[in-house]
């Protein structure tokens, strides 16, 4: 696999007053990669993600997302990424189709594209019969799968997933990861945060943040070897408790 870089962060620093939320973050993310972004609560993950999504300006550092500069090209960044979080995803009072149409419109798809893509999407998820059902009537697992599919409906270069799988049953959680693998397989880069350590092991590479710094960045296999642990849970505890 050729390693085409889609995210570059050189010395990313973000300060809030005296507080350093991101302290010299250095990493690259490659095309089609599933990149796990881990850390304890308050380690600075959300701040870094906001910067990468063009929602927050860093204090300093050279940072490019999808080839665009995070200081000057935030609008272009927003158009080339998708975003989904457990907290904010779909409008409960709109139907399945209305949500798809709404987001597709925001992402700038044409009416013809919206029609075709929404049909494909509902087909693929087996949601065609629920086309006119309110989101609030769907089980959580379906909502999450739909939210993810909508987040990539405009074929973004990168999709950011902020704890996407909280609260669902273990089978649905794995079905969700099937969608992630599928997207990565099709060349979409997946940047994901999670508290499930077994999910961390599904990633191609993982970075672990502690107190605003990236303390470790490698493949799960190498991290387990380096930190002499049988699983990522052990690696995480060793780093975050040190």
């Amino acid at each position: 696999m050729e390693n085409q870089v889609v995210i570059t962060s050189k010395n990313m620093i973000k300060k809030f007053g005296d507080f350093v939320a991101n302290d010299h973050l250095n990493f690259e993310v490659y095309k089609g990669e599933i990149f796990g972004f881990l850390g304890a609560n308050g380690a600075g993950k959300t701040t870094a993600m906001k910067i990468l999504c063009g929602l927050l300006t860093p204090t300093s550092g050279e940072i490019f997302v999808g080839g665009f500069n995070v200081y000057t090209e935030t609008e272009k960044i927003k158009r080339s990424i998708g975003y989904m979080s457990q907290k904010f995803s779909l409008y409960e009072d709109l139907t399945v189709f209305e949500n798809i149409r709404f987001y597709s419109g925001i992402y700038g798809l044409s009416d013809a594209d919206i029609k075709m893509k929404s049909n494909n999407l509902m087909d693929k998820l087996g949601l065609s019969a629920q086309r006119n059902s309110l989101i609030s009537s769907l089980p959580l697992g379906w909502k999450q799968k739909l939210a993810f599919s909508i987040a990539i409906i405009h074929d973004p270069q990168i999709v950011f997933l902020d704890e996407p799988t909280g609260g669902v049953d273990p089978i649905t959680r794995r079905q969700f990861w099937d969608l992630i693998y599928d997207a990565a397989h099709n060349g979409i880069t997946v940047f994901v945060t999670t508290h499930y350590m077994d999910e961390a092991e599904y990633c191609d590479r993982i970075s672990i943040m502690v107190d605003g710094r990236i303390e470790a960045l490698d493949t799960p296999f190498n991290l387990m070897k380096t930190y002499n642990s049988e699983n990522m849970d052990g690696v995480f505890l060793k780093l975050a408790r040190a």
Binding site: A40, N41, G166, H195, F236, L237, A240
Partner: peptide, 10 residues
């Protein structure tokens, strides 16, 4: 422990 990191959970 929902939404709490692995260390705090432990």
């Amino acid at each position: 422990t929902t939404g709490v990191d692995a260390v705090s959970r432990k």
